[in-house]
């Protein structure tokens, strides 16, 4: 996963901003409350905590965010984005659409 997206910072962020975001996330997702998220956050931080590491990540990382384009999209949504319900009107349209096979 993209470490910047995990930490919720821009790739242009500096060391301080990244550290602050990391500490904030670690406070929210402690190893006891959500070990998986904690591991993910720590791994992301280790990849981008200094300028040199950030540049190395930018230059040489070979990770793929998913197996297919849609999987990459789902992975991103799963890790980086808060799920937000559809607006009521959209929900209406969606449910009505589901009447049709």
């Amino acid at each position: 996963m993209d470490p910047y997206e995990v930490l919720g910072v821009s790739p242009q962020a500096d060391d301080d901003t990244i550290r602050k975001a990391y500490l904030e996330l670690v406070r929210r997702f402690s190893p006891d409350s959500d070990p998986e998220a904690f591991k993910r956050i720590s791994q992301a931080y280790e990849l981008v905590k200094s300028e040199k590491l950030r540049l190395e990540h930018y230059l040489f990382n070979r990770d793929v965010p998913g197996d297919t384009p849609f999987h990459a999209f789902l992975q991103r949504v799963r890790v980086c984005e808060k799920r937000k319900p559809m607006a009521f009107e959209q929900m209406k349209v969606y449910l009505r659409k589901c009447t049709k096979k």
Partner: peptide
């Protein structure tokens, strides 16, 4: 794009999938 967001995720996907 290199800008943060979903399109960056897709860009990374398309340009890095060949390593796998």
């Amino acid at each position: 794009t290199n800008e943060p967001g979903l399109l960056r995720t897709l860009s990374r996907f398309y340009f890095q999938a060949l390593f796998h």
